[in-house]
């Protein structure tokens, strides 16, 4: 990519309009776009960044060609807003564990949210919140879900390029184990007896945790058709107690179906 300034660009056909939206989240996934330092100005050259409040005051009206949605639905207002965004977007892509799996804030789904409000806020009457934190696809049709807490920058660039060119994104749905083997990283579960969620977690992080001598904690969410029960049994054999297994299932993708169900099994077992 050339780092020419945008001044000299001729005016070919209309550039596709990109919008970035935020719901309940930590901002990390949209920050990933700004973290594409090498590619940022090049991407900005190919696209019209029409709505990205974290980066710009400039707001253009929809419709938008591609919307990136970060965060989960936790308020009645947001549950309405996502429908408006869907109507304005030709393609809607959710980015990150909050938008695709409810995020860490979905831990409220297993408890009484009113108690949560009372623990954190002195005047609970000022707070309006839903009982649950839910992924975007429980509310509107989603064209593509990009996983991760946070998402991978290279996967983000791949997904944007794919939709701009009308092709399917090349994002694998297999497990982290496959990625680990390909990179030649020794299995931490087999060689060091460290409990690891690699067998049931979708690849994409680039084998971070096992490369740093720790077990995967599932931040990319469940892979396609995972055998979560078998993985958790292996955790037991390696000495993890029921409480620990329940907790690891309930972190950043707590509302993802396969993890949620297994966490409930272990919750019942530990009671």
């Amino acid at each position: 990519m050339e780092k020419k300034s945008t001044e000299t660009q001729s005016k070919p056909k209309r550039k596709p309009k990109l919008a970035v939206w935020k719901f309940a989240s930590c901002d990390g996934c949209q920050l990933s776009l700004l973290d594409c330092e090498d590619k940022l100005l090049a991407v900005a050259g190919e696209l019209e960044i029409a709505n990205f409040p974290e980066a710009s005051r400039l707001v253009q009206k929809g419709p938008y060609d591609v919307s990136l949605v970060e965060g989960s639905i936790t308020t009645a207002h947001d549950a309405e807003r996502i429908h408006q965004i869907r109507k304005m977007s030709k393609v809607l892509i959710t980015i990150g564990a909050c938008a695709t799996g409810g995020g860490v804030q979905a831990l409220r789904n297993f408890q009484d949210v009113n108690e949560f409000v009372r623990i954190v806020y002195a005047s609970p009457q000022y707070i309006s919140t839903l009982k649950t934190s839910t992924p975007i696809d429980e509310h509107v049709f989603v064209d593509f879900e990009l996983r991760g807490c946070p998402i991978s920058k290279s996967q983000l660039v791949e997904v944007i390029c794919a939709f701009l060119n009308g092709r399917k994104p090349n994002i694998p749905a297999y497990s982290l184990c496959v990625e680990c083997k390909r990179q030649g990283v020794p299995c931490v579960m087999v060689s060091q007896g460290i409990p690891c969620l690699g067998p049931v977690t979708q690849a994409g992080c680039g084998v971070l945790c096992p490369s740093y001598n720790r077990g995967c904690y599932g931040c990319f969410g469940p892979m396609e058709r995972p055998n979560v029960a078998a993985c958790c049994e292996q955790w037991s054999k390696l000495g993890a107690d029921n409480g620990e297994i329940m907790r690891v299932m309930r972190t950043f993708n707590a509302h993802a179906d396969e993890f949620r169900k297994e966490s409930m099994r272990y919750e019942n077992a530990s009671n």
């Binding site: 409220r108 408890q111 108690e115 409000v117 623990i119 919140t129 907790r247």
Partner: peptide, 22 residues
């Protein structure tokens, strides 16, 4: 109007070694 996420509430009952990740 950033929606509240209740970290201080759901940290109760978690293991102390989990805090840096959470």
């Amino acid at each position: 109007f950033e929606p509240p996420r209740f970290f201080e509430a759901f940290l109760r009952g978690r293991h102390f070694m989990e805090t840096p990740d959470i």
